[in-house]
Design a protein around this nucleic acid. Structure first.
Lengths: 124, 124, 124, 124
DNA sequence: GTGGTCTAGACCACG
DNA sequence: GTGGTCTAGACCACA
């Protein structure tokens, strides 16, 4: 579930943020589910507790997690807002991509086929 | 043509690289066209010559520019390679997007329609 | 009467202290009224007896409660002191607010009107 | 301008956040003004650079400051939103206070007089 | 010089 | 046991 790519240039703590976000978006984590404790996760991943804490703090600031000091970190119940926001962001990225693809002479047909291929490949 | 956003988080030299790349892709610059000299461009933009130098070095390393010591920097004639590389990168991004869209419950049809809309909107 | 918000960032024991204080101020509890026993209350609320104990100790230290070992905990008769102390604290907060409001360019008139509105709204 | 109360239970970094916010609200700092560098301020205050950085990160996250890595931290130009938000928050606090004051038997007149006194005292 | 990340290790309050 | 804060000190990219 939680994993870190030590070679990535993305900071560890941002990787963790993405980890949690995608778990929430895919339904693996949902309302009031507890996250691993800072110490637990840091020892599991072999990284410093401060780094995990930074990730959790960022998640709380983004409204995805709530923290109760002395108790732990939990997923916010109102996950729906995140889904909507994320969907909007992705569709915006799709539009941006479309323009660049077109500028490069790639046809709508080719782009749509590319999408379809990726959708289907995910089936396996 | 060349412009820098001083408030951007993107390093100056990367902004310059993007500048050149997009000018090549849009046809503003093409085979064997000369780039401004390091001193010229750095003074125009009010930035450190080292920064321009770094951008040109990156462009050369990426095969977009060639340098003739004592003469200057020039666009490679084989612009097609850049186009292909760029197209590949964009299609990879498209695949990534597809997976995320699917995970969020957006259908292939909806995504393809989004693409089509962006393609057409660009017409106007 | 006694209630705890498990999601609050306020420590349980402080929530209990506030519970008792507000009950005294509103007259629900008054001179020599007994508080629930530590064991009783802790089991009612499903929290650790140490936590209730800590709350009662804080209340005693603040002069709101007195303890008779072996008998229990009771509200002090001199409720007036608490009222006065509370009033002083609130007026201090009012002064602090006044300075901030002023710094923001809000006039005395506007602030006083805001106060009046809140006073009246409470009527209904 | 920047100061820390070492005895306060408020974390250093939050004190710094409040410092900057109040300087912005009072007009001491405004659009695009630079903040002291992390290292500079930390050495001035005799605290750890990480602590200052945490404060600056919080300010950026709150939309009060923007950071350009390698260049420094600067006040956002659109300060007006902060003023409005702050004003709203203060007026809400004022309403809350009003209710508590009333519950304690303090009259509207007394409260308004308290406000007036604080407003005037600030003149000197 | 600037900010950004990470580690190691300490101490605190709370339960 | 939990999270929160702070320190000291290291290394990186960028200008």
């Amino acid at each position: 579930m939680f994993s870190i790519d030590y070679k990535s240039r993305l900071p560890f703590y941002e990787q963790l943020v993405e980890n949690v976000k995608s778990m929430v978006l895919s339904g693996v984590l949902s309302g009031d589910d507890p996250l691993p404790s800072v110490r637990q996760l840091s020892s599991d991943l072999g990284i410093n507790p401060n780094t995990v804490q930074k990730a959790y703090a960022a998640l709380e600031q983004q409204g995805i997690v709530y923290t109760i000091p002395g108790k732990g970190n939990f997923i916010r119940p109102d996950t729906e807002a995140l889904r909507a926001e994320q969907a909007q962001a992705l569709l915006r990225q799709l539009s941006d991509l479309a323009l660049k693809l077109k500028a490069l002479g790639i046809t709508l047909r080719q782009a749509q086929d590319g999408l379809a291929a990726a959708f289907k490949e995910d089936e396996g």
